[in-house]
């Protein structure tokens, strides 16, 4: 397989995470290959978001190892972790735009904090490029409260792309959006991969999003991955009734 020939950018082994008695992840293994879009499917509360939050250091695993771009995340100092974080873009479920800042300021904020000595012209050029890439050049001076859900998602993606990440993590990119906007977001995820050469993990429970964006997918149930493969492989060979029910519900069988 072409992607697998390119090598792993993320390697997760035996990942466990519990919140008191709630065992969310119970020994999860996952590989992400360079240039690939991997979809993690699972019902709400199954631990999909926890998985990617552990990857960026927002949560700490109880057990297991994570290797991202050749760096083992366990035992990193904050400085080392921040260096790694610059290579990972995280698109939040509710966009998490800074609501006291304009769209332009939202995009500038991570750029100017992390790359010193940029001129005003360079910053403006980069912001304009990213807004063009997500199709919202006209929103530059708007406040987040003036944007629709889909526009917020796009700006959120643009904000993560401004630091040129190698890996993109999308947390429920289509949640709460209408079907047409969902299609636009799916296209954007694929466009980001092509235009910015990223590898991505897409967390979702939306099968259309999974089918449109994923090269491979894996289903997280009971804290473990139950089925992994292409869309067709996962649902054609599914022995677990709950995996099948994902398909049946999403495609109204």
């Amino acid at each position: 397989m072409l992607n697998q020939d390119r090598g792993k950018v993320v390697e997760i082994r035996g990942l466990k995470k519990s919140f008191d008695d709630n065992h969310v992840l119970m020994g999860v293994d996952l590989d992400l290959y360079k240039g690939e879009n991997l979809v993690v499917l699972g019902k709400s509360g199954s631990g999909k978001s926890v998985l990617i939050k552990i990857m960026v250091g927002l949560l700490k695993q109880d057990e297991g190892s994570i290797r991202i771009l050749g760096t083992d995340t366990d035992g990193l100092t904050l400085k080392e972790l921040n260096k790694l974080r610059l290579k990972i873009g995280f698109s939040f479920q509710h966009s998490a735009l800074y609501d006291s800042m304009t769209v332009k300021e939202n995009l500038e904020f991570p750029l100017t904090r992390n790359i010193k000595g940029l001129s005003r012209k360079e910053i403006d050029k980069r912001v304009d490029e990213l807004l063009d890439a997500v199709g919202l050049p006209q929103s530059v001076n708007q406040m987040p409260s003036e944007l629709s859900g889909g526009q917020k998602k796009r700006i959120g993606v643009a904000r993560t792309l401004i630091l040129n990440p190698e890996i993109m993590l999308y947390d429920e990119p289509t949640a709460g959006l209408d079907p047409i906007t969902c299609m636009d977001i799916n296209k954007l995820i694929n466009q980001v991969r092509e235009q910015f050469n990223t590898s991505s993990i897409v967390i979702t429970h939306d099968l259309t999003c999974a089918k449109e964006t994923g090269d491979r997918m894996t289903v997280l149930l009971d804290g473990q991955f139950k089925a992994t493969g292409t869309f067709e492989e996962v649902f054609a060979q599914a022995s677990d009734q709950r995996v099948k029910s994902f398909y049946d519900y999403n495609f109204i069988k």
């Binding site: 927002l58 610059l86 995280f90």
Partner: peptide, 19 residues
């Protein structure tokens, strides 16, 4: 203000941007 930033993940967004 900070509470609202916390629950809307704006603080997490800063952290993952190495801020």
């Amino acid at each position: 203000e900070i509470g609202s930033m916390k629950v809307t993940e704006q603080i997490d967004a800063m952290e993952v941007s190495a801020i």
